[in-house]
């Protein structure tokens, strides 16, 4: 069973009686159990909207959306989810401990365990020194940390995080990253939206790029990158390197010669075999063979530009 199954979702915000603002136009994607799914998209592409649908805050116009096999509108789906909103805000009259206790009770955490678990969570996100301070005095980064702590209450199977790393300092980022890896190790599923690409590259197992109301591209980071190979570079060494390069000129993008070294660049993957066979039968030696891909950022910007 998939953690999230999203099929052909349409959604528009209603502004007034007649005006509709179409945000999702046939959105489909799956999130497998275990692992980290990065939900990418430019500002206003509909990431938060999708997350609101997952939480049943808004109702889709059409399509199906299930979480662990339950309709996203079913209250049973809620039991599996830990949700962290973008720019979370809290009850100003409570401190972190009181707030987390309140949420624990709503989530149905066994009462005698609440206190101990909250202490662990507060430590985990690094709020020990601020646990008794009114939340109204929190900085944005501290709110973000509390946002993650409250999402983790009740040890949910699926974490839905809307731009969890925004507002965090480098230390906070590292803390969050480590928490995410630990959760993954424990078999949890993470679904998070972001447009911070380095985070995605470091953390995510799978990425979906949301564009114009649909998933424009989806796959593991490796898959995405390998579909965007710019060229393959092969470095050959030996006295006959120049001759060797000359022989294959027809298939290459460019050849750069240094003394006894040829750097051959080509784009066709099938050519790798040809060249390797030829190397075996000749006096030259293979020094390196490397794919040069576009960065995820290039792909993202490229996809964004198409919309």
């Amino acid at each position: 069973m998939k953690t999230i199954e999203c099929k052909d979702i349409h959604f528009s915000y209603k502004a007034g009686f007649l005006r509709h603002y179409r945000v999702l136009k046939g959105l489909s994607f799956d999130v497998d159990q275990r692992g980290i799914y990065g939900f990418l998209g430019i500002n206003g592409s509909g990431k938060t909207t999708t997350i609101k649908l997952l939480n049943n805050f808004i109702k889709k116009d059409s399509g199906t959306l299930t979480i662990f096999g339950f309709d996203a509108q079913d209250i049973k789906a809620r039991a599996y989810i830990g949700y962290m909103p973008e720019n979370p805000s809290f009850y100003v009259y409570l401190n972190a401990k009181e707030f987390l206790t309140f949420i624990s009770r709503l989530k149905g955490v066994h009462k005698p365990e609440i206190k101990e678990r909250i202490d662990i969570l507060i430590k985990l996100v690094g709020l020990e020194r601020h646990a008794d301070m009114p939340i109204s005095k929190y900085s944005r980064g501290m709110s973000q940390r509390l946002g993650l702590a409250q999402a983790l209450i009740g040890d949910p199977e699926l974490l839905i995080l809307d731009e969890p790393m925004a507002n965090l300092d480098p230390i906070g980022r590292r803390v969050f990253r480590e928490i995410f890896f630990k959760l993954k190790e424990r078999g949890k599923t993470l679904f998070f939206s972001t447009h911070i690409i380095p985070d995605v590259e470091m953390i995510c197992d799978k990425v979906g790029i949301l564009m114009d109301g649909r998933i424009a591209k989806e796959g593991s980071i490796d898959e995405l990158l390998s579909s965007h190979i710019e060229y393959i570079e092969c470095v050959i060494k030996g006295k006959e390197a120049g001759l060797f390069a000359e022989r294959h000129k027809a298939h290459t993008l460019s050849v750069t010669m240094q003394t006894d070294t040829a750097i051959i660049r080509f784009t066709d993957k099938k050519f790798v075999d040809t060249i390797l066979k030829d190397i075996v039968g000749s006096t030259v030696k293979l020094s390196s063979l490397e794919e040069h891909t576009q960065s995820l950022e290039d792909i993202f910007v490229h996809e964004a530009g198409r919309a």
Partner: peptide
């Protein structure tokens, strides 16, 4: 938006 923190629970 604190309501989001409540209604996302069961």
């Amino acid at each position: 938006k604190t309501i989001q923190l409540i209604l996302s629970r069961p």
